[in-house]
Nucleic acid binder design. Structure first.
Lengths: 233, 233
DNA sequence: GAGTGGTCTAGACCACCCT
DNA sequence: GGGTGGTCTAGACCACTCC
């Protein structure tokens, strides 16, 4: 057994973490194969298994590793989806939409509350966007509750905006706020990510050709899965 | 001593974390005053101090708490700066710029490498943007190394674009990629954030009126300090 | 010197997966 | 049944701050 050389500049779990990071970058631990177990790493580095677990957990939070209880810890495949920033971008061919829920509730997200009415019960449509049988985005749309039922029925199948367009209601102005925030319990479950995992979010307010209809919402994805692109002017 | 009621739906450290979150939201633990020490919380919740520390560390990662060794743990003031998405937005009056370094190096960030030349030594200007004596953003600018020295000298004082404008070189097109990524060791130190803290980033490529000059860079801030806004069309 | 958070350890138990 | 990661504990040491 070869004792690896750890950089002593920092605490033990930091040294272990950085050494593992180097190995991942070097391809020593390829994806699709479990990395050595905590017990093995503990022996190899001559540190307690607690310290190994601490390093592994930090690398999970950074999106580098993913641990599956009972199986092992794996290097995460780094594939970022690049999308237009504007929420109005037409859907990609290889994505599908699954409806999660349609409810009536008030806007609870504090940041969305800055660009949308807070204390008003609205129609709330939640859906997930999938690609290659993996969830890549989650959308929460709020709009006026007095929308015709024939439109509401279509919300499950397509984006709210697409459904509105089919009824000759189109978006005239879009206001966006981009931020990052820890995942809520709801999306943690959907994406299978650990608590507090950062989400890249686009909060939107869309004015339509129908003066009575304004659409609000949040379109979000795990930070390591998405990047948005835009051009000026 | 009143034993608090913990929701038993989850693991211990999760229950503790959520109870602390509730108290913070309710204002039980105001900012500027240290919350009870790990020893006190350990006694109050009747769990080991390790478990308390685990909960506190997760709340730190979420940007809710900040611990200062030897002093205590504090509720973080949640003040997000809202800025225009376009990097070209004029500087605010109450911000100041501090130069960090001017070097010659290749672009190392892999994401920036997708919109900029990778294997070319460039002039690299790093600076921090401060507001109320706190660092709020960090900028890394890359540009062609054969820029006149009289322009380079101004890079320390103002944004690279502002310096170029003073020499009649203005930006004609901006291409942006917005993403979120764990903080690098360099910016960890500047912002005083824990390892892997998520950063909201804007990676830019700017074409100028001078065909020989294209500007690349990364403008980033801790995810809980910044949000960007933009309007379409 | 007392109190604080940060680190590290050994040891135990559990739920889960695979064979 | 053996291996995996996840959780929890008691106990120890350190560096730091404040009085």
């Amino acid at each position: 057994m070869i004792k690896p050389q750890l950089q002593p500049s920092q605490s033990l779990h930091e040294s272990v973490r950085e050494e593992l990071r180097r190995r991942i970058a070097a391809g020593t631990y390829p994806p699709d194969v479990a990395i050595p177990s905590t017990a093995m790493l503990s022996e190899e580095f001559s540190v307690s298994s607690i310290t190994i677990k601490r390093a592994l957990r930090d690398l999970q939070a950074a999106g580098t590793l993913v641990s599956i209880p009972g199986k092992g810890t794996y290097v995460k495949q780094q594939k970022r989806l690049l999308r237009q920033l504007d929420v109005m971008q037409p859907s990609l061919d290889d994505t599908s939409i699954r409806s999660v829920s349609v409810t009536r509730e008030k806007i609870s997200d504090p940041t969305l509350g800055t660009i949308a009415p807070r204390d008003q019960v609205m129609l709330c449509v939640r859906k997930t966007i999938w690609m290659d049988d993996e969830p890549i985005m989650h959308d929460t749309t709020y709009l006026s509750p007095d929308i015709g039922n024939e439109v509401v029925d279509e919300f499950g199948e397509r984006f709210v905006v697409d459904a509105l367009v089919r009824h000759s209601i189109h978006v005239t102005k879009t206001h966006l706020v981009i931020d990052a925030a820890p995942a809520t319990a709801e999306v943690e479950e959907i994406f299978g990510i650990p608590n507090g995992y950062p989400m890249l979010r686009r909060l939107y307010r869309m004015v339509t050709s129908d003066p009575g209809i304004t659409v609000y919402g949040v379109l979000q994805a795990p930070f390591d899965r998405l990047a948005c692109t835009v051009d000026f002017p």
